[in-house]
Simulated scan of single mutants.
Amino acid sequence: MIDLIESLGKGDHSIAILGSADQVYIQTNYLADRDLFNLDYRDGGPSRHYQVNVPTREIVMAAFLSYLAGDDRWRTMVAWERDTHYEEL
């Protein structure tokens, strides 16, 4: 997983997803035009989808490692905002 996060934005790699169940995951994609990472998680249905843009790969790495470890630090390390886009689909 560390190598995958490190490869984001280099070559063809622009997205990483780590899931623990159906519709329960954390993911990121590199936004090259803005030099940012979009980080989002889903904890069930469409009304439980959150996102935030972060400036560094280190924040993404910390969030993914926390999620993988099963602790909740990833939930408070950034200011998540509810993403209502998926509720409208």
Rank of each mutant, 00 (worst) to 15 (best):
D35S: 14
A62N: 10
D3N: 07
V24C: 14
E81Q: 10
D43A: 12
G70K: 03
Q27D: 14
L8D: 01
R48M: 10
D35G: 09
P46C: 13
E58Q: 14
E88P: 00
W74Y: 14
A69Q: 08
D43H: 10
D83R: 02
P55K: 15
V60P: 03
Q27S: 09
S7Q: 08
I15D: 10
S66H: 07
V78S: 02
W74P: 02
D35T: 10
M1T: 05
V52C: 05
M77P: 00
T28G: 00
R57N: 06
Y30C: 02
N38W: 05
N29H: 13
L68R: 09
L8M: 14
D72N: 07
H85A: 15
G44P: 07
Y25F: 15
L39D: 06
K10Q: 12
F64H: 03
P46Q: 15
Y30T: 00
V54S: 03
D40Y: 12
D33M: 12
T56P: 04
A69F: 04
S14I: 13
D3W: 05
Y50T: 09
V24I: 08
N38I: 02
V24A: 10
A79S: 10
G9L: 00
S47P: 09
S14Y: 11
A62C: 15
L39A: 08
Q27V: 07
E58R: 07
L8G: 01
E87C: 02
I17L: 15
R73D: 13
I2L: 10
L89C: 04
M1W: 12
D12A: 08
R34Y: 15
M61D: 06
P46D: 15
I59M: 08
D83L: 03
D72R: 05
S7N: 11
A79Q: 13
S14A: 09
K10H: 05
E87F: 03
I59R: 06
S20E: 10
E58P: 04
D43G: 13
S66W: 00
H49L: 13
G9N: 02
A63G: 03
N29P: 04
L65M: 12
A32L: 15
V60F: 02
T76D: 06
E81M: 06
I15R: 15
R73H: 10
I5V: 11
S20Y: 10
L31E: 09
G44D: 12
D71I: 01
Y30F: 13
A79I: 04
E87R: 00
S66N: 03
T56D: 13
Y67S: 04
G9Y: 00
E6A: 12
A62D: 05
A63H: 00
Y50N: 08
Y67A: 03
D12I: 04
N38T: 10
R57W: 00
G70F: 02
Y67Q: 01
Q27T: 09
S7H: 01
W80K: 04
F64G: 01
D33V: 15
V52E: 08
S47Q: 13
V60G: 08
S47F: 15
A79R: 07
D83H: 02
L65Y: 08
T56E: 14
P55S: 11
W74Q: 03
G44K: 11
I26V: 12
